[in-house]
């Protein structure tokens, strides 16, 4: 039980995530991908006569159950099988982030950026609202996210997914190295 309560190493978590690919395929030809669920929500709630959202979303409703599962899984993992503590990141990352203005290192997310009290500050707005917007817009434009392209796409050897994944990383590097230090100072 103690081993489960500790954070899991990459060589346990990674292969388990990889096994989701064949599991979903064998459960009736479902392809792993999370961002599609965001489109489903749009199609179900606010289709607004846009052709991109006019399809039979009920047929694909399994991925709404899938993301509901992720929420419940997140709850179980955090409240039942974890011992709270800080994330054991590289001290150099901590030092760099401190220099750039991050103060709270006590949890999975820095509370001095991601909290309701920060939401109405400029910095909070950029990190909480604008960041999410870029994630939603970008993944749909790219046709998938880390699960759909990087894991499912590359697993089935589709080169457009490899291109997309490289672009995800490029965008991330550009943001982290050249833009984020300024955003943290807002």
């Amino acid at each position: 039980m103690d081993v489960i309560k500790q954070p899991w190493p990459w060589y346990v978590a990674g292969p388990l995530i990889g096994l989701i690919v064949p599991t979903l395929l064998l459960f009736g030809n479902k392809t792993f991908g999370v961002s599609g669920a965001l489109r489903q929500v749009c199609a179900a709630c606010i289709p607004a006569n846009i052709s991109f959202f006019k399809y039979d979303w009920k047929k694909e409703s399994w991925n709404l159950y899938f993301v509901t599962g992720i929420i419940i899984g997140g709850f179980i993992a955090t409240y039942l099988i974890s011992t709270p503590g800080l994330v054991n990141i590289n001290p150099r990352t901590t030092a760099l982030l401190q220099q750039e203005g991050v103060k709270d290192f006590s949890g999975l997310l820095p509370q001095d950026i991601f909290s309701f009290s920060q939401l109405f500050t400029l910095r909070g707005f950029v990190f909480i609202v604008l960041g999410g917007f870029l994630v939603g817009f970008g993944t749909r434009y790219a046709g998938g996210c880390t699960s759909g392209h990087a894991i499912m796409g590359i697993s089935s050897l589709q080169w457009p997914s490899l291109v997309a994944t490289c672009c995800f990383m490029m965008g991330g590097f550009i943001m982290t190295w050249f833009i984020l230090p300024y955003l943290l100072k807002l």
């Binding site: 817009f137 291109v163 995800f168 965008g171 991330g172 943001m175 833009i179």
Partner: peptide
Amino acid sequence: GGLIFGLGWAI
């Protein structure tokens, strides 16, 4: 889209 998502991912 990939680049845009990357920017958002890092934020």
